[in-house]
Design a protein around this nucleic acid. Structure first.
Lengths: 192, 192
DNA sequence: GCCATATGAGACATTCTTGTCTCATGAGAA
DNA sequence: TTCTCATGAGACAAGAATGTCTCATATGGC
C-alpha cells in the first residue's frame, strides 16, 4: 500500500468516525469512548489510533463544526440579497450540522483551553455582521443586539435539533421553525 | 436540640445547598460532588448526608426546577390579560430559575427514568396552552405550533442565561431579550 | 503464495469519582 | 458545665473510563 493510499484511507476513516461520533454525542453527550467506537463500527484501539484521546476527539469535532459553519457561511453568501433572505439561507445551510452544533454549544468546557476560540470568533463575527447589516438597512430592529441575535440563532437551532431528534417536530420543518421564529417571532403580523 | 429545630435546620440547609448546586451546575454541568460541596460551603460528607448520591442531588434539582416553574406559572396568571402580556410575565417570573432551567434542559439523561416526567408535562401543557390561547385570539401566528413555541421559550431562556453568565449580555436585559425575540422576532415592525 | 500493515480483541495499570466509613471537634441545649 | 449531635476531615474500597500495551488475524499489494 503506497503512502498516498494510506493517507487517503486514514482521512476517509477519520471523517466517517467523526460523523458517527457527532451523531452519537449530539444525542448523548456523555457517551464513552467505547460507545463512540462501536457507533463508528470500529474498535476502541483503532479509535485511539485515530484520535489520541477523548480530548483530541472533542477537539476534532470542534474543528469539524468550525469547518461546517464556515462552509455554511460561505455557501449562504451572507452579503447578498436582503438580510432576512440571507438568514434563511444561513439556517438552511447550517441545518445538517445542527446536531453537532447543539453538542458543541452545550459543551461549555470547550473554552477552558481557548485554542480554537479564533475560529468561533470569526464565525460569530460573520453572523453578527449579517444582523448588523439588516439593522442598518432598516430590515431588523435595533433594540436587540447583533450578539444576542447570534446567540439566539444558536439556541434556536439547538432547540430545534433537539426537538427533531426527540420526535417532537418533523425534520422537514426545521428551517421553517427556526427562521420564522427568529425573524418574525410569535406575534401575528398585521396584513399590510 | 428538639426534633422541630432539627427538621427546620435541615430544610434550610437543603434549600441553600440546592441553590448553590444549581448555580454551579448551570455553569459547569460536570462538576464533582466535591466541587458542589465546596461551592455550598459544606463538606462532602454533609452533602452525602443531605443527598444520598449524585443521582439524588440531580433529582432534587429537577424537583426544585419543577417547583419553581409551577410557582412561576401560577404567579404569571397565564389566563389573564392578553397572551403577549402573559408571556412577558411568565418570562419575568421564570428569570430567577433560568440558570437551573438551562442546566436541566441540557441534562438529557434525566428522561431515562421518567419519574418526574409528569411534572414537566404539566408545565409544558400550561405554557403550550398559553400560546394556543394567543393563536385562537388572533394575537399569535398559527404556522408555528404551540409545542415549538414552548421549546423555543426554553431554548431562548437557556441561551440568555448562558449569555448573561458569560458576560456577553447584561442581567437586566434578560427579560427584554427573551420576550422581544420570542414574540416579535428580529424583523422590524412597520409602524402602524 | 508471501509479506506488510492496519485492525480487533483483550489484558493491564492509572486516574477520577463515587459511596461509605470512622473519628475528632465544636456549637448548642439542658 | 456537661451532654448531645451535626459537622468536617480524611481514610478506604469499589467502580468506571481512560490510556497503553501485546498479540493474533485478516486484508490488500507484491
Amino acid at each position: 500500500m503506497s503512502h498516498m493510499a494510506y493517507a487517503c484511507l486514514m482521512a476517509v476513516d477519520r471523517e466517517h468516525v467523526l460523523r458517527s461520533a457527532a451523531a452519537l454525542l449530539a444525542r448523548k453527550s456523555t457517551s464513552t469512548m467505547d460507545e463512540v467506537a462501536k457507533a463508528a463500527g470500529i474498535s476502541r484501539a483503532t479509535l485511539h489510533r485515530l484520535f489520541a484521546g477523548r480530548d483530541a476527539l472533542v477537539r476534532a469535532l470542534e474543528g469539524l463544526g468550525i469547518e461546517e459553519c464556515e462552509a455554511a457561511l460561505t455557501a449562504a453568501r451572507l452579503g447578498e440579497d436582503t438580510a432576512p433572505e440571507a438568514v434563511r439561507r444561513l439556517v438552511r445551510e447550517l441545518e445538517p450540522a445542527a446536531g453537532l452544533l447543539a453538542f458543541l454549544y452545550t459543551e461549555n468546557q470547550l473554552f477552558e483551553g481557548e485554542q480554537l476560540y479564533e475560529g468561533w470568533a470569526r464565525i460569530d463575527a460573520g453572523i453578527a455582521a449579517l444582523f448588523r447589516r439588516g439593522q442598518q438597512s432598516g430590515e431588523f430592529r435595533i433594540d436587540l443586539t447583533p450578539a444576542w441575535l447570534t446567540e439566539a440563532l444558536y439556541g434556536l437551532m439547538a432547540s430545534a435539533a433537539w426537538a427533531v431528534s426527540e420526535g417532537r417536530a418533523a425534520p422537514k420543518d426545521f428551517t421553517h421553525m427556526v427562521v420564522e421564529l427568529l425573524l418574525g417571532g410569535a406575534l401575528r403580523r398585521e396584513e399590510s
